[in-house]
Design a binder for these strands. Structure first.
Length: 1167
RNA sequence: GGGCUUGUAGCUCAGGUGGUUAGAGCGCUACACUGAUAAUGUAGAGGUCCGUGGUUCGAGUCCACGCAGGCCCA
């Protein structure tokens, strides 16, 4: 058997194909070949966004990796060399958390219950926990990526490249130390990550003293801004007030409720009711302090927030002055975060204690309120223990004339246990918020003080409220090159475009400096060493540099290298040990290297080693800044670090930079996409990638996010096992564009399997079965010229060329959905349901003829091209199809160096469409044929005449000659398909056509515009005679409001509607009439065909093979039946491969058949 | 709260530059066909094109404002 036949179900086949092809790829190293065979060809560079192997892969990873895989395979087909280095993302918080969970510890325990070294060792082990599962998925889903030599972000070489990049940034002045306002726990003495803040139970209801403070406008007797705060202790640090530009504000004339002084206060109009409450009464006369027990007020002015901008006010609590730019402080600025939800619509800004505040102040050039500590370092008014600094404390003490400040800690919660007893024991203890309230009330600066219940984040460790506090942080000055980054982004092809212009573009437009610092343990250390005062600072850019500059204390040298016991005979003298009388003895890494030659490989650049190294400069000790860097920097550095650039592989790097293509989830826009872009732009003034597909989410079938809790997670391994990878991959890209969210429904996969893959299987089986019977084998050097092939062949070949073009373009444009839909439509509708169906007879009957040969060659070509076109998406099934179609001639092809010489479809070169074979006219003909057949079927069904009953003719009205010619070209196909004898055409002079006229709105609209309705009405009134005259003369006059308007043919659409006295069906502008008269002759023919059908069924029931011969004996019966058999004996025997067909008076054996209204007894014998 | 995105038949999706009767597949109902047969054909039922307003002779399509879902950011 030359072509293997596959009779199993499609699901069995899919599983089998997966296994066999995978084994084939492995045994023949097909992936490796697909890269090596393109050596020296242009490269198509793909960057793999590294997954983290500390979690298990999910179905969404199948989606993401399918998209990645498709375009790499496609460009391989196009002859490019596509290297794809795999990678692993190995640093970061999720890994730390997992380790902590496994060990049952918290961050607090690190350095106590477990050493940093052991902790990081554990992280290193955990990182690859599920690597096996990932590798298995990669292989099973047919994702081709180099897993043999992946980049791993925790390796020294990788870190070294990161350091080099950081040094580049540092040297350009783009890496600097600054501050960010972060959640900080004074009780624990540590910053909190947003993740820690998102722990359940962190947000608690608390009751705080809140103040609506009065900020006096400069140069006015008693005009005030009102601003509300839930953290009164931040008021001494106030340097600005923020308003919303578009918010409406009012100035209200009234009295202060605590001092009774007349005041004019400004607040948001929308919040006036809430602020004044029922203590106030609206009255024109506000001279009196009280009216009916309430305070009278009146609105005296209204304004927009915009008008308030820049107005200066007097400092509320002048206990300290800004260190710099004091002239820019104490004025009104704009804040996009200002709302009229609560408060006053005017927000008190203390840049040192609020993230929004910090940002808004910075934008407006407003300075923070800071002081210099004893060492001359700038710090906010509150220290890290949560206490006011001495100078502020002294001012409070002075105001309250009290030697021991009652509000030393800004929140009572922060009082350390050892003080608690002492301080709270005092009867007159009051929280600072209360003290400030008292002070402001007395000074006519508090409009309203009240308790307010709200949620506030608490430290999960100490259970005490967090403080938003400025912490030291290292930044990359991305803002310095913002415009360039924006410009570079415009050269990137984003799919979809909106992600690039919208989400990413806006992000770039509103860029802030990249905060690089992370206070963690497992990650790339920031390679900056500095003296305590920050005066000396070194950014290290390589391991070599580290060794040349670094020192280890003697203790550490012993710990890491067993220094005391090493053979140090090579060392010249003790000068190599740097003596520091006060701090101990340090040994330079250079010296250690002399004794430990493979030092580099023994280093671990992670903590704690990196922290244990000191640099010595001008006799000063430089310690490493303890921060780690954002893991996103790791992944953004992969174009360089994956090749250990610039320390190694400079040539490979240059040939593969920037990437032609990357793809990740749209949620990576501000993650990986950004970090790639930022590093490339800042360090190399380049883009990192030219094309990017951002993929959407994979949701469950109801559009819900998949989660373990909901139990709607789809296990990728099970799904693959059950449906095969190809159906899943195909489904994922066919169902919706990759960038839209996908509602993943296994029922849809199943449907696709039935619909598409099963059809393909059947089509192949059909080919294989007959090819084997006829001993057909493709011969690449002896194919029938296309012009000699049948209409049907030329048509399908033409359609195939269109398909190649469409698919090629779609893949080029990263529109994979378009590509697969086109392939699917071709296979199901054009190839299987039209070409094969109409060609069945050609394969079935008789000897090998030229026509039959053409049919084989045509079908072979279609299936082969289909295999190639679909191979990027369904790599297994495509391979299976390709091999089945070509394995039998491989040796010949290799010998002769033909396109089919490749063992795998994935090693072939993309078929070029042959435009000469595209015949648009023929395609239109076939479209007509398809629609005419469909219409005839529809009439037959309506009249209950089965297709097996031949009918005499159909009538097709023809309004132009071109259409007639097109139908003529396919008339035989139509006749066979719908079982009629002849087609006749009628033209409009036959007098039996009823025509319909319709305005061509598109044309008429241009001319008549508003008169459209009227003219449409006129056209609908036209009679048959009018239509005929328009057609004949090419114009027709209608009257609109008495004005003559000339209609021409292009202003209308004319179609034939009906044919008097016929059974008619109509679709678009095709109309068909069917002659439903059944003459005796036709009936006899119908009987013959019925008989053929029944005999075929009997053959099949008996399990006969296609080529088996039979003898048929029929018992005489109904006259018409007898006549039919006699007349059509040759036809019947031919169709059923009967060597004998006899009509006998009596047939004892056999069976009695009932067909319609007649019966027949017959026997079918083998032989 | 902001940016982006989606909303068309029970389900999954098509519907260049506005053109009057909005389509396909699946599912459902009925009928037919049968050497590809767990396939196929024909017909039917099924629509507030998310809503409101606007531009226009004409809006699923363009504009504005909303509503609902999703992602990211605050």
């Amino acid at each position: 058997m030359k072509y293997k036949e596959y009779k199993q179900s499609i699901s069995q086949l899919s599983t089998q194909v997966n296994q066999e092809i995978l084994a084939f790829w492995k045994a023949n190293q097909v992936f490796e070949q697909s890269v090596t065979s393109r050596e020296g060809k242009p490269t198509f560079t793909f960057y793999e966004g590294p997954p983290s192997a500390n979690g298990t892969p999910g179905i969404h990873h199948v989606m993401a990796r399918t998209i990645k895989d498709i375009f790499c395979r496609y460009h391989t087909l196009k002859g490019k060399q596509v290297k794809r280095k795999g990678g692993w993302d190995t640093h970061g918080l999720p890994i730390e958390l997992q380790v902590e969970k496994e060990l049952g510890i918290t961050k607090e325990d690190i350095g106590k219950k477990i050493s940093v070294a052991d902790y990081n060792k554990k992280c290193r082990e955990t990182v690859m926990k599920y690597k096996d599962q990932w590798d298995e998925l990669t292989e099973k889903m047919g994702y081709w990526v180099d897993l043999q030599n992946p980049y791993i972000t925790f390796e020294n070489k990788y870190i070294e490249s990161c350091w080099w990049l950081l040094q580049q940034l540092y040297n350009k002045g783009l890496l600097y130390q600054g501050y960010t306002i972060q959640p900080y726990s004074p009780a624990a003495g540590t910053g909190l990550s947003s993740h820690e803040l998102n722990q359940p139970g962190t947000y608690k209801m608390v009751k705080d003293t809140t103040i609506v403070a009065q900020f006096k406008i400069k140069g006015t007797p008693n005009d005030y801004f009102l601003a509300w705060t839930t953290t009164p202790w931040t008021l001494p640090a106030n340097t600005a007030l923020a308003v919303g530009k578009d918010i409406d504000y009012v100035k209200v004339k009234t009295h202060n409720q605590y001092t009774n002084q007349p005041v004019n206060v400004i607040m948001a109009k929308a919040l006036m009711g809430k602020i004044l409450g029922n203590k106030y009464v609206n009255r024109n006369d506000t001279e009196e302090e009280k009216f009916a027990g309430k305070i009278p007020y009146v609105v005296c002015e209204e304004m927009k927030g915009e008008e308030l901008l820049g107005i200066e006010y007097e400092q509320l609590i002048p206990f300290a002055q800004p260190l710099e730019n004091a002239e820019n402080a104490f004025k009104v600025i704009a804040g996009d975060f200002v709302t009229t939800e609560d408060g006053t619509g005017i927000v008190h800004i203390s840049p040192t204690f609020g993230a929004d505040d910090f940002r808004a102040a910075k934008q407006a050039g407003v300075p923070p309120l800071t002081i210099l500590d004893e060492e001359g370092k700038e710090m906010p008014l509150v220290d890290k223990q949560g206490r006011f600094v001495k100078s502020v404390k002294a001012q409070f003490d002075a105001y309250f004339d009290n030697s021991e400040l009652k509000n030393k800690y800004i929140k009572p919660n922060y009082i350390k246990p050892e003080y608690e007893e002492k301080e709270s024991a005092k009867e007159n203890y009051l929280p600072s918020d209360v003290l400030i309230s008292i002070m402001l009330k007395e000074q006519n600066k508090a409009f309203k003080v009240e308790k307010y219940e709200h949620t506030y984040p608490h430290c999960w460790r100490t259970d005490k409220p967090v403080l938003y506090y400025p912490l030291e942080s290292w930044f990359i000055r991305t803002t310095a090159l913002k415009d360039r980054l924006v410009e570079l982004n415009k050269t990137i092809n984003w799919k979809p475009e909106s992600t690039g212009t919208g989400r990413f573009g806006n992000w770039l437009e509103n860029l802030v400096d990249w905060n690089l610092s992370r206070s963690r343990y497992w990650g790339t250390p920031l390679p900056i060493w500095r003296t305590e005062d920050g005066k000396e600072e070194v950014c290290v850019g390589s391991i070599e540099e580290l060794i040349s500059l670094g020192f280890l204390s003697k203790e550490k040298a012993n710990e890491y290298f067993d220094w005391d016991n090493l053979d140090k005979s090579n060392l010249s003298n003790a000068l190599d040990i740097f003596p520091m009388s006060s701090t101990g003895r340090y040994i330079s890494l250079q010296e250690i290297k002399r004794v430990v030659p493979d030092l580099e490989s023994k280093l671990d650049l992670h903590k704690p080693f990196a922290d244990d190294i000191v640099l010595i400069k001008h006799g000063l000790i430089l310690n490493r800044v303890p921060d780690l860097i954002d893991v996103w920097f790791d992944s953004g550095a992969m174009p360089y670090a994956q090749w250990h650039y610039p320390f190694e592989n400079q040539d490979i790097f240059k040939a593969n930079y920037p990437a032609d293509y990357i793809s990740e989830g749209v949620d990576q826009t501000r993650g990986w996409f950004f970090t790639l872009h930022a590093i490339a732009g800042l360090v190399f003034d380049s883009v990192a990638f030219k094309n990017v597909v951002s993929t959407g989410l994979v949701l469950d079938k109801d559009g819900e996010k998949m989660s373990k809790r909901k139990g709607n997670v789809i296990n990728p391994f099970e799904a693959i096992e059950r449906y095969g990878v190809d159906a899943i991959r195909w489904y994922m890209v066919e169902n919706s564009d990759p960038w839209d969210n996908l509602k993943f429904n296994l029922a849809g996969v199943e449907e696709l399997q039935r619909k598409f893959f099963s059809t393909l299987q059947n089509t192949y089986n059909f080919f294989a079965m007959y090819a084997n019977v006829d001993n057909y084998e493709i011969d690449e050097f002896n194919v029938m010229p296309y012009e000699q092939r049948s209409t049907l062949d030329r048509w399908v070949i033409s359609v195939l060329q269109n398909l190649i073009e469409t698919v090629d373009k779609a893949y080029t444009d990263y529109d994979v959905t378009k590509a697969v839909r086109a392939i699917q439509d071709f296979v199901c509708d054009q190839l299987s349901n039209w070409y094969v169906r109409l060609s069945r007879k050609r394969f079935w009957i008789g000897e090998m003829t030229a026509d039959k040969l053409a049919a084989y060659q045509t079908l072979h070509e279609c299936l082969l091209v289909t295999a190639q076109l679909m191979s990027p998406v369904a790599p297994f099934f495509a391979e299976w199809l390709y091999k089945n179609m070509t394995d039998n001639i491989r040796e010949k092809a290799k010998a002769k160096n033909t396109p089919l010489q490749y063992d795998s479809v994935h090693l072939t070169y993309f078929t070029e469409p042959n435009k000469n074979l595209i015949d648009k006219d023929l395609e239109q003909s076939m479209t007509l044929a398809q629609s005419i057949c469909s219409l005839v079927h529809s009439i037959r069904k309506d009249k209950k005449i089965k297709v097996r009953q031949p009918l005499q003719k159909i009538l097709i009205p023809i309004l132009d000659e071109a259409t007639k010619a097109q139908i003529e070209a396919v008339k035989d196909l139509i006749k066979t398909e719908v079982n009629i004898k002849e087609i006749t055409y009628i033209s409009d002079d036959s007098g039996i056509l009823t025509k319909k006229i319709k305005p061509n709105f598109r044309e008429l609209g241009k001319i008549y515009g508003k008169q459209m309705q009227a003219i449409a009405a006129e056209i609908s009134k036209m009679s048959q005679a009018d239509i005929n005259r328009l057609e004949k003369e090419g114009e027709f006059i209608v009257y609109l409001n008495g004005n003559a308007s000339k209609l021409t043919l292009k202003d209308v659409e004319i179609s034939s509607e009906d044919i008097a006295g016929w059974s008619v069906a109509k679709d678009g502008n095709v109309t068909v009439a069917l002659d439903i008269t059944i003459t005796d002759e036709l009936r006899e023919e119908g009987i013959a065909r019925d008989l053929v059908n029944r005999i075929q069924n009997i053959r099949k029931d008996k399990g006969l093979e296609v080529q088996d011969k039979i003898k048929v004996f029929i018992q005489e019966g109904d006259k018409a039946v007898n006549m039919a058999i006699r007349k059509h004996a040759a036809y019947i025997s031919g169709e059923t491969q009967a060597t004998v067909l006899e009509l006998l008076p009596q047939v004892a054996q056999g069976e009695e058949l009932e067909i319609d209204d007649w019966k027949v007894r017959l026997e079918v014998a083998v032989g």
